[in-house]
Simulated scan of single mutants.
Amino acid sequence: MTKTGSILLSALAGATALLLTATTPASANPNAINPFPVLNGSNGLPNLTGRTQAVFQVTGMASPNNTQSYNVLGTDLGIMWDNGSGEMLTAFGDTAGLGFPNLLAGSVWAWRSNILVRSHTQDPANGIFFDSVVRDVFGQARDLIPSPKIPFIEISRIPTAGIAVNGVQYMSLMSVHSWDDVGQWTTNYSGLAASGDNGETWAELPETRRPNEGANANFQMNAFMKDGGYVYEYGTRSGRNRAAFVARVRANDIANIAEYEYWDGERWKKDDVNAAAPIMFGVGELSVMYNQYLGQYVALTTDPFNSVVMRRAPSPSGPWSDPEVLIDTRELPSAYAPSIFPYQTGRDLYFLTTVHSQYNVILMRTTL
């Protein structure tokens, strides 16, 4: 959820020449050939000296997943969830490759707002390997929910959460109206899309849209968690350094906004989004999961200094602890959007995070 449009615009001046002169044969060493600065993930893994280590390049030309083979040179987010049958689905956000313009006049970049890959990796110690990707007729990763990509109308439609309920896949996406100051953007609305064929095709659910106004503005960026028959939805306003709120709904009613309950600080109130009270402050993109090793709920996000942090709580509604730094911003200032690996791995907590300096996604490991 970064200013991908700005990234692509700044690349336009040299992109045509690159298309004419650069090749990337399958046997080429991407660390030696770097025709697409920033967007190719060929800078190597960052060397972190704190409690977190970078363990695997998930996307980009240096990734064993060879994402360039389906025209993914740069991407962000990496939102993971189990499809209900032991397979992991991962949705990525704004994704750059080469191709015909699909957005900006004169652009040579193929820009997709939401793509999806599948994996059977449940032990990520040696990396996360993709089995398949949702492709277009040319074999390239394709948009799941297309966006017109018109500034100040809808510049992008970005996934922020995913979950499976009764064999149906659901994604929460935000409709981005405009990119504003660094770390800030304005949305039109958030809403759900659903897939009955394991993420191959998707349909919007317009009745689930939350307009970016009133208290619904507090649920523009979301994270999902299943617990006790409920789906918990953790929401923030668009942009980073925000307050977070929480709602819940019986899993079977996930597409019925009227059935959602909102935590007011003491109790749950049904169908009253205005009742939602903040549960934590100063957060960016959120990922929440129960951790069996700790016996607590954990939330990953970034703090106002752009460090990747973890908070703990005894229940889904909190109270949430003060943040613990997992990746200090002084070590990796361009990291954002940590997303928790959906399968338990004992004392090791694995998560994906985007490194904006190479605009690709990296697998991280923290020892709890």
Rank of each mutant, 00 (worst) to 15 (best):
V308C: 07
A13Y: 14
P314F: 09
N34E: 15
L89V: 11
V58T: 05
I155N: 03
G214D: 13
T49C: 06
I362W: 00
A91N: 15
V72I: 15
R347W: 10
S307G: 05
Y336R: 02
A164Y: 01
D181C: 09
G5C: 11
S69Y: 11
M221A: 06
G235Q: 01
S63L: 12
Y260H: 05
E233F: 00
V325L: 07
D197A: 08
E154I: 05
G99K: 12
T160A: 06
P278Y: 02
S156T: 09
V325H: 03
G284K: 01
T52K: 02
Y336L: 07
S85V: 11
G60D: 10
Y297D: 00
I362N: 02
L20V: 10
R135W: 05
E331Q: 14
E331P: 06
N29T: 10
L19F: 11
M61I: 07
G139W: 10
I128G: 03
N126E: 13
D264V: 01
T367K: 11
N29Y: 10
V137W: 13
S317C: 07
V298I: 15
G196V: 08
R250C: 04
I254W: 00
N102Q: 12
T345I: 09
E324Q: 10
D82Y: 09
L332D: 01
D143P: 04
L294E: 11
V308D: 05
V298P: 03
V361C: 09
S317E: 14
D136Q: 10
A203Q: 15
N360I: 08
S172P: 00
R267S: 14
A28K: 10
S321V: 10
S113V: 07
A276M: 10
T24H: 14
F281A: 10
M310F: 09
A217V: 06
D303G: 05
Y359V: 03
I33M: 11
E233T: 01
R250G: 08
F138Y: 15
N218S: 03
N126I: 07
E213C: 07
A161P: 08
N65I: 08
I153Q: 13
G196R: 08
F130E: 02
A164S: 13
N241E: 12
R142M: 10
W263C: 03
V72G: 04
L332G: 01
P342T: 04
S42N: 15
A217S: 14
M310G: 04
R157F: 05
L18F: 08
R312A: 02
G84W: 04
N34G: 12
A13I: 13
N274V: 12
K3V: 09
G183E: 04
V165C: 02
D143Y: 06
A105D: 14
I7G: 01
R240W: 13
Y343F: 15
D264T: 03
D94V: 04
A243G: 12
L349D: 04
L294M: 12
S287Q: 05
L89G: 04
I163C: 03
S307E: 02
D94P: 01
I254L: 15
M88N: 01
N306Y: 10
M88K: 01
A32Q: 15
I33N: 14
S238W: 00
A335L: 07
P37Q: 12
D131V: 05
N66P: 00
D131T: 11
A110K: 08
G41E: 02
T21L: 15
M171K: 12
T208V: 03
E261A: 07
I79M: 11
T121S: 12
D143N: 14
G50V: 06
A164E: 03
